[in-house]
Design a protein around this nucleic acid. Structure first.
Lengths: 148, 148
DNA sequence: CTCCTTTATTTGCAATATGCAAATATTTAT
DNA sequence: ATAAATATTTGCATATTGCAAATAAAGGAG
């Protein structure tokens, strides 16, 4: 299996840097954590606090405070959920949507640049490989917990 | 390019969880950051503080304090460098080597389990893909800075 | 040799993030 | 009606972060 861990370590390190570089939108500076929260809220369907915290594998109390910050920044909205009044539904404000879309565009642009160094065939292979890897990690019983 | 970012996001999230699960050795609990510092020191050849901090893309002042902590935990040793007395060379103590090897073994075991859900051919393809991806990220001019 | 600039590392400090325990509010089960 | 479970927030103590400044040593210009 040679240096498998090193391969993965290098990859995640670089992808992490890429992510970090995409946390500035206009004048606004987001932390990596905040960027991930916005990403998950955008992706999930009317999620509750708990659901998003679970998805990010973040302690709910820390998460609660991050949401307070994001609300002060006018990026996130909390709506009481009528069917269960303990629950709040999270959503992005228009500004939050704008910021999230901007980050998404920038990440994709960076990724496109990375892929521009490959042939069409290589690109397809790499993407298929990552898809397969994700499936196998989902199947894995031993690692990558907590699952989402 | 479909959902390329989502693919990468899922992968890094899961690999991050895998990494986090590997931070407990015996009774000792390491943070993810500390685990990465040990990993880099182990890998680099007689590195200075600054070199490791750069490799991890971490602010040198934060790094300096993390090293202080790791020294208190008796995992890391700082040796003055005779040729340039501003510099300290970092190395792992025997205990640090043990912990680092233990983490490495656990990560590799987890990765092996993930790859056990693939055929030999798929595994080779995935590893080759990641190698290629790393090369392309290294070539990239626009992202993944600061480089290492 | 002396002065100035650069580099490596550490400390002061203030802001932020973290997570456990406990509080609160609400729902579900008995 | 009461008890147990769930969702969210707050108290608190600790840890992490990064900028600015301090310290120490090296290298270069004259």
């Amino acid at each position: 299996m040679e240096n498998v861990r090193e391969l993965f370590h290098t990859m995640t390190k670089r992808l992490g840097l890429l992510d970090r570089n995409c946390c500035t939108v206009g004048g606004m500076e987001l932390s990596l954590v905040q960027s991930h929260i916005l990403y998950e809220i955008d992706r999930m369907n009317e999620p509750s606090m708990q659901q998003v915290a679970d998805a990010i594998a973040m302690d709910i109390t820390t998460f609660s405070r991050q949401i307070q910050t994001l609300m002060k920044m006018n990026l996130v909205k909390k709506t009481p959920y009528p069917q269960d009044r303990r629950v709040y539904i999270l959503s992005l404000t228009p500004e939050g949507k704008y910021v999230t879309a901007k980050i998404d565009a920038e990440v994709n642009e960076y990724l496109a640049e990375v892929f521009s160094h490959m042939s069409e065939f290589e690109r397809e292979t790499v993407l298929r490989s990552i898809r397969l890897l994700n499936e196998c990690m989902a199947k894995s019983t031993v690692c990558c917990k907590p699952l989402f």
